[in-house]
Amino acid sequence: MTHHDPPEATQPPTVAMRDVVVLLGRFPALAGFDLEVARGEVVLLSGPNGAGKTTVLRTCAGLAAPVSGEASVLGLDLHTQRSAVRRRVGMVGHASGLYEELSVLENMDFFAGACGASGTEARAALERLGVATRLGDVPVGALSSGQKRRVSFAAMLVRRPELWLLDEPHSGLDQAGRDLVDGLLSEAAGAGATVLFASHELDRAEGVSHRSVVVTAGMAGESGG
């Protein structure tokens, strides 16, 4: 395990959770979960399937609501200020989050327009993710899963989020794509963004993270760092 050195914690944490409970229906997906992530940190969430990693990410994104416990992201309370949290974070999940009927460029223009970014920035993000120009007019539904993954990343990047939340970011990507994602994670941390990501590819993921947190049955276990 070769974690990077973490940044010095001189600012309030980007993510602070204490004794957080999140329900999926009536099932407690997180049961007394604790987590603290400093600004600029790249933190890996590991653990078995169904342990609650995705729920942690969705809660940090303001997409799932905690029913109890103390929880804040970027200094905003996850009980009362989730819509403000959503404006400042970016997430790439299992699903593409893209309109399959629209082309790559139409999707990018929509999501760039939504956050006030320009078409030029949208195209720059696609270029950064190595999405070929010839794919611009192709409907997203016709792309391979790896290509969709790159476009999803580009749609997140164009928003310039302060907290990146990534669920299996290497999934579906070829070797070049995986290397590209690793580079993006390092760059994000260098630029002051915070990254929280879940992965089963521990060798690769630990190489780009400052520390890891094991999630088991909705609880945070031991951390490595």
Binding site: L63, M91, A95, L98, C115, A155
Partner: peptide, 16 residues
């Protein structure tokens, strides 16, 4: 259209 492929989450995170 909004409920397929996690698009509703993207819309919620879009800042719109």
């Amino acid at each position: 259209v909004e409920l397929s492929n996690g698009v509703l989450d993207s819309l919620r995170l879009s800042g719109l």
